[in-house]
Structures are given as structure tokens and as C-alpha cells.
Simulated scan of single mutants.
Amino acid sequence: MSAILKVRQMYVTTGSTVQGDDTSRGTLLKDIWEVCTFRPFADLVGLGMLLVFASDLQQWSAALAIQYAFGLEDQLQNLFLVLLAASVLTVPVAALLLNRFEKKLVLAGFALLVMGVSVGMMYVPARRLDVFFVMVCLLGIGIAGPTYIPWTMLTDVADDFKIRKGKRRDMLFQTLFQSLNITAILLASVTSIVALEIGGYRSGSCIQPDSVAFTTRLLISFIPAGATLLSLVFLWRYQLTGERLAANKAVLEERRTQQSADSGNTDKAAPEPSLSMKSHDLPDTRHVRGPVQLTYFGPYGSFRFKRPKSSSPYKMEI
């Protein structure tokens, strides 16, 4: 209750002059700077970029690792299908977990699972389909959480920004977060290309040196695990805990209820026209005119009907 009262008091002091959604418009650079320096968003960006980097780096390097490091090139399509199916089927489970537990706790659990599986990938023996199959299933389950949960946390950041700043910048949050995620994907692809180049990968050759097998194992094991471990630092710094989210939700519900009551009072205050009203009480409609013209386009020409300013009948022009 103390957190809810604190957030309400802060909302009254910072947003008392803001009615409804914010309509003020500053410069774009100023808005971007204000959004990027908002601490919950900055922590979420660092968290999301590192998780996206780790996930996409594994996906970029998985095909080469399966072929040259594990010797399972004949099972490449089946293994990718298992990875995709495990990831898709885990999303509803992640949604159920978010309804019962805090988002930070659920995301930390998925991140720890990804770290453990990624490190284990380094030591999977070659041509052991049974072991690698289990590891791929666990990796698909772990990837689902970091892919899905940060987007649900973005709405919480936007609501917290509205309460603290008295402004609504949802589209800017979405655009910046999406753009930075794309940047993380590009960094993952560049990292994969540079690492393979250093490892001696020869494009177009069916036989690769042993250094390529070791490099691909690193790209799907220790490097993603290190990025995921670093993302936990930003997750620990993330300030929107369950108590603060509950306080924000209570404040927003209270404001929504107040706005509904205010709109209801406004509607009741408007008098309804009745027979007892005098002519001067009714709205003046003498200057309200109908449509100026109506044009018809047909196969034999066009016909335009104009309403004259005088009271004479309508005339037709061809």
C-alpha cells in the first residue's frame, strides 16, 4: 500500500497539469533523448539487445555447427524443425507463467536455461544425435522467453513513463526498441562472419579445417552464454518490480475511472431539447447549408446539380 500511495502522490505532483493524453510536441531529438535516458527503458534496451544478440548468433551459426562440428548434416532440417517447434510451443507456457509470477523472475529462469544449454553445446560429442536432439529441444524452450517477454515489459515501461513524466510516447518506445533490436541482429551477423573469417572458413568448400569446427562451437556456446550473463546485469537493474507495477496499475485504473465519471457528468450537463424550450434556446441552424453540389459521371457525359444561393429551384448544368 505504501508503494501505491507513493506513486499516487508522485502522479499528483508531476501530472496534475496534464489532462488526458499529452498533446505537447517538442523537437524529435528532445523526445528521443528523454525516452532513451529514462532508466527502465535504458535497462530494457540493454537487456533486449543482449538477448537478441545471443539468440540470433546461435541461429546464424547453428547450420555450420551442425554440419562441421557435430557431423549431423543429414539431420539439419529435422533439427531446425525441432528447434522451431519447441520455441513456438513454449510461448503459451511463458504467457501462463507471466500470469502467476513476476516478469523478472520468469525471464531470469529462461535466461539461466539458455546459459546452461549454450555452455553444454560446447561439450556435446560429434555424431551423437540423441544428445544433440535433447539439447536442441532445451535451447528452443529457452529462446522462447527472451524473444517474447521483453515486448510485454515494454508496455510497462510506457505506462511508468506516462505516470512519471505526464506524457504518452508509446510509438516512440516501440520504434526505438524495434530499431535497436534490428541493430543487435546486425551485430550478431557481423560477429558470426568475422569469427568464421578468423577461424579459416573457406566459402564454397566442402572440407573445412578443424579450426572452423571449434569456431562454430564457440559461436553457439560460450559467446551467447556470455551475452546472456551480461543481460542479467541489466535485468537486475530493471526497476519495474511487481510492487511498482501494481502501484502503476492502480493509478491508471483510478485515472480511467475518474475520466469516465467526468465524461458522464459532461453528458448529463448538456440539456436535451424539449417542447417547453423557446426558439432562442435551440441551436441556430439558419446558416447551416446542405451539400453544395452533386456530380454524376456517366457514359454520355457528366451532370452537376448546384444549389443556388437564392430560393429559386435547383438547376441542372451539363
Score class of each variant (00 low, 15 high):
V124E: 04
F173L: 05
G301K: 04
Q77S: 14
A227F: 01
V7H: 01
T13Y: 01
K309I: 10
P291W: 10
S16A: 04
L81A: 14
L98T: 15
G298A: 06
G20V: 00
S310E: 00
P146E: 09
C137I: 13
N99A: 02
I143C: 09
S61G: 11
R256S: 15
V88A: 08
V82C: 08
A246D: 14
R8K: 07
K6Y: 11
G20K: 00
F80W: 13
G109Y: 03
E272P: 05
G140P: 10
G20L: 01
R25P: 09
K104L: 04
G140I: 03
A54G: 01
F101Q: 11
R256V: 11
I185A: 09
A126M: 11
E272L: 08
I141F: 04
R39C: 12
P273G: 13
L79T: 03
G116P: 00
Q77F: 01
I207W: 00
L81Q: 11
H280I: 02
A62G: 06
A158N: 10
V131R: 01
L47R: 07
R25S: 09
Q67Y: 09
E253A: 15
K162N: 07
M10G: 05
G200L: 03
D56S: 00
F234T: 04
I143N: 14
W60S: 12
S312F: 10
Q75H: 15
W60A: 15
T191F: 03
I143V: 14
Y238F: 14
Y68L: 14
S87V: 05
V124I: 00
K268P: 01
G226S: 10
A3K: 08
G199W: 01
I185L: 06
R39E: 05
G71S: 12
A85S: 08
T216K: 05
K309Q: 03
F41Y: 04
L186M: 10
V194W: 08
P291F: 03
R169P: 00
F214D: 08
G48N: 15
T23A: 10
Y11D: 14
L57Q: 07
V212A: 12
V212G: 03
D170Y: 02
P291E: 09
I182G: 01
F297N: 09
L28C: 14
L79V: 09
I4A: 02
S2D: 08
R217Q: 08
G301Y: 03
I163C: 11
Q19C: 12
F133D: 05
A195G: 06
V190H: 06
L81Y: 13
A85D: 05
G142N: 07
I4C: 01
A86D: 03
A42L: 11
Y300C: 15
G142C: 04
L81E: 04
L180I: 03
D159L: 04
K167Q: 12
L50C: 12
S192G: 12
K249F: 03
M121V: 07
C137K: 03
L72H: 04
Q208G: 14
V119G: 13
G109N: 06
Q58D: 06
R8Q: 00
Y314P: 11
R164Y: 06
A250S: 15
R237S: 05
A63R: 01
K268E: 02
A108V: 14
P299D: 12
L81N: 08
R289Y: 08
L138M: 15
